[in-house]
Simulated scan of single mutants.
Amino acid sequence: MTSPHLTASALAVQWAGELLHLLPERALWWPAARVLLVADLHLGKAATYRALGQPVPGGTTQQNLARLDALIARLAPQRLVFLGDFLHAAQARTVLAAVADWRARHAGVAMTLVRGNHDSRAGDPPAALGIDVVDEPFLLGPFACCHHPQSHATHFVLAGHLHPVCRLYGPGRDSVRLPCFVSDARQAVLPAFGEFTGGWLMERAPDRRFYAVGGETVWALPPSD
């Protein structure tokens, strides 16, 4: 049964004995614990490129934060876990001010950042944001929340870092790349939440499942032979 807070386009999965929902917003919802997980925001990435003289679009930080606003308003999570790469690099004052305004709107939501490789370069978010910052793995129930995909002896790993995408083939030579969730026997990788992040095409494997995100829908792709 679909939760009243979820759209029919969310896809339910069972990982580590827990019911989870793969959201078309490229986020993961754990309803029993009221935990929302997202990976790879890379806030301020476009601004970093523009500072280098690259003609990339503006407004992506506000778009990312607005999408988080909508998810929080709809799901009312008790905790938001960032699976690494919250900030892309050391950021200008305008980006940090936007993030501070966003955090103030959700002061009642506990937030945890699992450090990723870009967090190591950018430094921890300012302490005034009230975001707990931890190293991987961050153990939460049956899950090991990580940035880098890896194995864990006792917990099912939830990770990011790879920005996974899959390729769907149409008639002739037509194909399209879509962001996706990817799961193996003891691990799942979330798509990048950020708007300006790119993606890595993950290869099929016998025990690997792909869940494509297209428009406002998530659907399971047929398993590999």
Rank of each mutant, 00 (worst) to 15 (best):
D174N: 07
C146R: 03
F156I: 00
H152I: 03
T154P: 04
Q150R: 13
L139P: 03
D132P: 12
L168D: 03
L168S: 09
F138S: 12
G130K: 00
R173P: 13
L139S: 13
D119W: 00
L168M: 11
H155P: 00
S175E: 04
L162G: 08
D135F: 11
C146V: 04
A127T: 13
G172V: 08
P125H: 05
P126I: 04
P137D: 10
L168P: 08
G170K: 08
E136T: 10
S151P: 00
H118F: 03
P171V: 09
H118I: 06
A128T: 08
R167W: 04
F156N: 00
H152D: 14
G172I: 10
V176M: 12
L140W: 09
P164C: 07
P142M: 12
C146F: 03
P137Q: 11
P142S: 13
V157F: 05
P125E: 07
L168E: 12
L158F: 07
P164S: 08
V165E: 12
A128C: 06
C145L: 15
V165Y: 05
C146I: 02
A159R: 00
G172A: 11
D135E: 15
R173A: 15
G170H: 10
I131F: 00
Q150V: 02
T154Y: 07
H147S: 00
D135H: 15
L178A: 10
S120V: 14
P137G: 09
L158P: 08
G123S: 02
